[in-house]
Amino acid sequence: MLTESPIIKFQNVDKFYGNFQALTDISIEVHPTERMVICGPSGSGKSTLIRCINGLESHNYGKLIVDGVEIFEGSKDIIRLRQEIGMVFQQFNLFPHLTVLENLTIGPIKVRKISKAEADVTARKYLERVHIPEQAEKYPSELSGGQQQRVAIARSLCMESKILLFDEPTSALDPEMINEVLDVMVELAGTGITMVCVTHEMGFARKVADTMVFMDEGRIIEVAPPDKFFSKPESARCKEFLEQILEH
């Protein structure tokens, strides 16, 4: 029943930076509990697309509906809507002046108006889930990159959002730390939360994705389930891209 109406819906969305067109005629739907992985060469508009979903970027033309609410520049609903959308960034963006625990609880306490005690319990639960409960009292700068990114994931989980967005979550990590973050993301994928993930980690994509999306030059070139996407992609551009990143 839930899967019938999409939770995210792009309808002919265009986005410009000055004269440069970052997104061209994007139409795509994400359904509740769906796990979508977006890939493509750099500058193809993947990040812009995902950042439109929680209004960090605003689109210029077309229609974007998230959780039943239409998003447009300056809309008042966007601040409330962001509580339902967690986001994990390439550069972690933890709050350096707060401890790990405070990083996780500041959203629930100040935005959701939950009591500190309750927020602490939730925060420790999610720190457990990302396997670093012992780091709660430390400051972000005392943690490794992989640990910081797991704290960032826990922070977005603490808001108990319906949708999780990942914007190249492993691209800024040292190679030996990528797997600890991907493991956490695979575990999350099993919990039934809606995920939209921009990544180059094709192993991860193959494991968790329901839908693969390939983008190039601001357009969606290919949308397919992972089996078909990796075995026989339709477009030549997508095939070329996959060959390049799967070669090694």
Partner: peptide, 8 residues
């Protein structure tokens, strides 16, 4: 961006 994304 991080603060916005948690709804502040």
């Amino acid at each position: 961006e991080a603060a916005k994304s948690i709804g502040m």
